[in-house]
Computed example of a mutant assay.
Amino acid sequence: MPMLGKLPKLKSLSLIYGSYQGTAITCSKDDFPQLFVLKLWNLNSLEKLDVENGAMRNLRELEIRSCSNLETTTGLTHLKILQEIKLTNMPKKCTDDIVNNFAAAVAQSAGKIHSPAIKIEYSKSCQMKL
């Protein structure tokens, strides 16, 4: 991930089943400077996603799908222009934490922090939008 994060023209990144074996993804300050879309699908070993302040500063869409062991996400509120987060077939605790982190950040900032649209889908027949 550190090498990918330094690619100056990378606009979209999809990590799909088997393409990432680590338990944690950390996006450090200044990583992924031009990334617009990040998709994390079926990364069974992923337990933690950490976004440091100043990382992925152009990210507009984040999609996390079927990462069944993802327990912790930190720093998503640093993504100032993020427009949409899609969470599909994710553990309820993970989705609740993401929603609650944005709600707390907005409340603490008196509405000065941008909150993206968060779409949560548990199955094709049941979808909840916040």
Score class of each variant (00 low, 15 high):
residue 1 M to C: 11
residue 4 L to Q: 04
residue 4 L to T: 04
residue 4 L to Y: 05
residue 5 G to Y: 03
residue 6 K to W: 05
residue 7 L to D: 03
residue 9 K to V: 12
residue 11 K to Y: 08
residue 12 S to G: 12
residue 19 S to D: 08
residue 24 A to D: 11
residue 25 I to Y: 04
residue 25 I to M: 09
residue 28 S to R: 12
residue 28 S to N: 12
residue 29 K to L: 05
residue 30 D to Q: 10
residue 31 D to G: 05
residue 33 P to Q: 03
residue 35 L to S: 03
residue 40 L to F: 05
residue 41 W to M: 08
residue 41 W to I: 06
residue 42 N to L: 10
residue 43 L to M: 05
residue 44 N to M: 11
residue 51 V to P: 04
residue 52 E to C: 08
residue 54 G to H: 05
residue 55 A to K: 00
residue 57 R to N: 12
residue 62 L to A: 05
residue 65 R to F: 10
residue 66 S to Q: 13
residue 67 C to N: 05
residue 67 C to V: 03
residue 68 S to N: 12
residue 71 E to D: 11
residue 71 E to G: 07
residue 71 E to I: 09
residue 72 T to E: 13
residue 74 T to E: 11
residue 76 L to N: 02
residue 76 L to P: 01
residue 77 T to K: 05
residue 81 I to L: 08
residue 85 I to M: 03
residue 86 K to E: 11
residue 88 T to F: 15
residue 90 M to K: 04
residue 90 M to Q: 06
residue 95 T to K: 02
residue 101 N to T: 08
residue 103 A to Y: 07
residue 103 A to Q: 14
residue 104 A to K: 15
residue 111 G to V: 04
residue 114 H to N: 11
residue 115 S to F: 01
residue 115 S to V: 05
residue 117 A to K: 14
residue 125 S to D: 14
residue 125 S to R: 11
residue 125 S to E: 13
residue 129 K to H: 12
residue 129 K to W: 09
